Lab assay of single mutants.
Amino acid sequence: EETYEVDGEEQLKKVEKMLRDRNLDVEVEIHNGKFVIRAK
């Protein structure tokens, strides 16, 4: 499992696309105004 923490939606979209391109399962949560992306 990998976890990424990003600020802002633009970064979120980039990271999310990169992970989905690797066929990973992606979950996004918001913690303290930051996006936390978990990939399995």
Score class of each variant (00 low, 15 high):
Ile37Pro: 00
Glu29Thr: 13
Glu16Val: 15
Glu2Asn: 06
Glu16Asp: 02
Arg38His: 06
Arg22Pro: 01
Glu10Leu: 07
Lys17His: 05
Glu2Gln: 08
Glu10Pro: 03
Glu29Val: 12
Lys34Pro: 01
Val6Glu: 02
Glu27Ile: 14
Lys14Asp: 07
Lys34Arg: 13
Thr3Tyr: 14
Asp7Leu: 11
Val26Asp: 02
Val6Gly: 04
Val28Tyr: 06
Ala39Met: 09
Asp25Gln: 13
Asp25Glu: 14
Lys13His: 11
Glu29Phe: 15
Val28Gln: 00
Leu12Tyr: 09
Lys34Leu: 05
Lys40Thr: 11
Val6Phe: 06
Gln11Gly: 08
Met18Lys: 03
Asp7Gly: 05
Asp7Pro: 05
Lys40Tyr: 12
Glu29Pro: 01
Gln11Ser: 09
Phe35Trp: 11
Gly8Val: 06
Glu1Thr: 11
Gln11Glu: 14
Asp21Gln: 09
Arg38Phe: 07
Val6Ala: 08
Leu24Cys: 15
Val15Arg: 02
Val36Arg: 10
Ile37Ala: 02
Val36Glu: 01
Ala39Cys: 15
Gly8Tyr: 07
Lys17Val: 07
Asp7Tyr: 14
Ile30Cys: 14
Val26Met: 10
Gly33Val: 01
Asp25His: 14
Val28Thr: 03
Leu12Pro: 01
Val26Asn: 02
Glu9His: 09
Asp21Glu: 12
Glu2Leu: 13
Thr3Gln: 09
Lys14Ser: 07
Glu2Trp: 15
Tyr4Gly: 01
Arg38Asn: 03
Gln11Val: 09
Arg22Met: 10
Ile37Glu: 01
Asp21Met: 13
Arg20Thr: 05
Asp7Gln: 10
Glu16Leu: 15
Glu1His: 11
Thr3His: 09
Val26Ala: 05
Asn32Leu: 05
Val28Asp: 00
Ile37Ser: 00
Lys13Val: 08
Asn23Lys: 08
Asp25Trp: 14
Glu1Trp: 15
Ala39Phe: 12
Val28Ser: 02
Val15Thr: 04
Leu19Cys: 14
Leu12Gln: 02
Arg38Thr: 08
Glu1Ser: 11
Val28Ile: 13
Leu12Glu: 02
Lys17Met: 10
Leu24Pro: 03
Asp21Trp: 11
Glu16His: 10
Thr3Ile: 15
Gly33Tyr: 04
Gln11Ala: 12
Glu29Met: 11
Val26Trp: 15
Ile30Leu: 09
Phe35Leu: 09
Thr3Gly: 07
Arg22Leu: 08
Glu5Asp: 04
Thr3Cys: 15
Lys14Arg: 12
Glu16Ile: 15
Glu27Met: 12
Asp21Ser: 12
Glu9Leu: 14
Glu27Ala: 09
Val26Cys: 14
Asn23Asp: 10
Leu12Met: 13
Lys40Cys: 14
Lys14Gly: 04
Lys40Met: 08
Asp7Ile: 13
Val26Ile: 12
Val15Leu: 14
Arg22Thr: 03
Ala39Thr: 10
Val36Trp: 08
Glu29Ile: 13
Val28Leu: 04
Gly33Trp: 03
Glu5Val: 14
Ile37Asp: 01
Lys40Asp: 03
Lys40Glu: 01
His31Met: 12
Arg38Tyr: 06
Glu16Met: 15
Lys40Arg: 13
His31Lys: 13
Phe35Asn: 01
Gln11Tyr: 08
His31Ala: 09
Val15Tyr: 11
Ala39Trp: 13
Glu1Cys: 15
Gly33Ala: 02
Tyr4Leu: 04
Asp21Ala: 13
Leu24Val: 06
Gly8Asp: 15
Glu9Phe: 13
Val6Met: 05
Glu2Ile: 13
Asp25Tyr: 13
Val6Arg: 03
Arg20Ala: 06
Gln11Thr: 09
Gln11Pro: 03
Glu1Arg: 09
Glu10His: 06
Lys17Glu: 07
Glu29Ala: 09
Val36Gly: 00
Val26Lys: 01
Lys17Trp: 03
Lys14Met: 13
Phe35Glu: 00
Lys13Asp: 05
Gly33Gln: 00
Gln11Arg: 05
Arg20Leu: 10
Gly8His: 08
Ala39Ile: 15
Glu29Tyr: 14
Gly33Arg: 01
Lys34Gln: 05
His31Glu: 07
Val6Leu: 08
Leu24Asp: 01
Arg20Asn: 04
Val15Ile: 14
Glu27Tyr: 13
Leu12Trp: 08
Gly8Cys: 15
Glu27Trp: 14
Lys14Gln: 11
Arg22Asp: 02
Glu2Ser: 07
Glu29His: 11
Gly8Trp: 11
Glu5Arg: 09
Glu16Cys: 15
Arg38Gln: 02
Val26Phe: 15
Ile37Tyr: 02
Glu29Ser: 13
Asp25Ser: 12
Asp21Phe: 11
Asp21Pro: 00
Lys17Arg: 10
Leu24Ala: 04
Lys34Ala: 05
Glu9Gln: 08
Met18Asn: 03
Glu10Met: 07
Ile30His: 08
Lys34Trp: 10
Glu9Arg: 09
Asn32Gly: 10
Arg22Ser: 04
His31Ser: 10
Lys14Ile: 14
Lys13Gly: 06
Arg38Trp: 06
Lys40Val: 12
Leu24Lys: 05
Glu16Gln: 14
His31Tyr: 13
Glu10Arg: 05
Val36Leu: 13
Ile30Arg: 09
Gln11Lys: 07
Glu10Gly: 04
Val28His: 01
Asp21His: 09
Glu16Asn: 06
Gln11Met: 13
Asn23Phe: 12
Lys13Thr: 06
Asp7Lys: 07
Gly33Phe: 00
Asp7Thr: 11
Arg22Tyr: 06
Asp25Arg: 12
Asn23Ile: 02
Lys40Ala: 05
Val28Glu: 01
Glu9Tyr: 14
Phe35His: 02
Val15Gln: 00
Glu16Pro: 01
Glu16Gly: 04
Thr3Ala: 09
Ile37Arg: 00
Ala39Tyr: 11
Glu27His: 12
Val26Gly: 02
Gln11Ile: 08
Lys17Gly: 04
Leu12Ser: 06
Lys14Leu: 13
Asp7Ser: 11
Asn32Val: 03
His31Trp: 12
Gly33His: 07
Asn32Thr: 01
Leu19Glu: 00
Arg22Ile: 03
Glu9Ile: 14
Tyr4Pro: 00
Lys13Gln: 10
Ile37Asn: 00
Arg22Val: 00
Glu27Asn: 07
Ala39Asp: 00
Glu1Val: 14
Asp25Ile: 14
Glu16Phe: 15
Asp7Met: 12
Asn23Gln: 08
Gly8Phe: 09
Lys13Trp: 13
Gly33Pro: 02
Glu5Gly: 03
Val36Met: 08
Val36Tyr: 12
Gly33Lys: 02
His31Asn: 07
Leu24Gly: 02
Glu9Thr: 09
Leu12Lys: 08
Ile37Gly: 01
Val36Asn: 00
Arg20Asp: 00
Met18Pro: 00
Glu9Ser: 05
Glu29Asp: 06
Gly8Met: 07
Val26Thr: 05
Phe35Gly: 00
Glu10Trp: 09
Asn23Ser: 08
Glu5Trp: 14
Leu19Gly: 01
Ile30Gly: 05
Met18Phe: 13
Asp25Gly: 08
Lys14Phe: 11
Leu24Ser: 01
Lys17Asp: 04
Lys13Leu: 10
Gln11Phe: 10
Asn23Gly: 15
Asn32Phe: 07
Phe35Pro: 00
Glu2Thr: 11
Asn32Glu: 08
Glu5Thr: 13
Lys40Ser: 10
Glu1Gln: 11
Lys34Gly: 08
Asn23Pro: 01
Leu19Tyr: 08
Leu12Ile: 04
Asp25Ala: 11
Glu9Asn: 07
Asp7Arg: 09
Gln11His: 05
Leu19Arg: 00
Thr3Lys: 10
Glu9Trp: 15
Glu10Ile: 07
Glu1Met: 14
His31Gln: 10
Leu24Phe: 13
Glu2Ala: 08
Ile37His: 00
Glu27Gly: 03
Lys40Leu: 10
Asp25Thr: 13
Met18His: 04
Asn23Ala: 06
Arg20Tyr: 06
Val15Phe: 10
Val36Lys: 07
Asp7His: 10
Asn32Ile: 04
Asn32Arg: 04
Asn32His: 06
Arg22Glu: 03
Leu24Gln: 05
Asp21Arg: 11
Leu19Ala: 02
Leu24Asn: 02
Ile30Ala: 08
Asp7Cys: 15
Glu1Leu: 12
Lys40Pro: 04
Arg20Ile: 05
Val36Asp: 03
Val6Lys: 03
Lys13Ser: 07
Asn23Glu: 07
Glu5Pro: 03
Arg20Cys: 12
Ala39Pro: 04
Asn32Met: 06
Lys40Gly: 04
Val36Pro: 02
Glu9Met: 12
Asp25Pro: 04
Asp21Ile: 09
Arg22His: 05
Ile30Asn: 08
Met18Ala: 08
Asp7Phe: 14
Glu27Pro: 00
Leu19His: 01
Glu1Ala: 11
Met18Tyr: 12
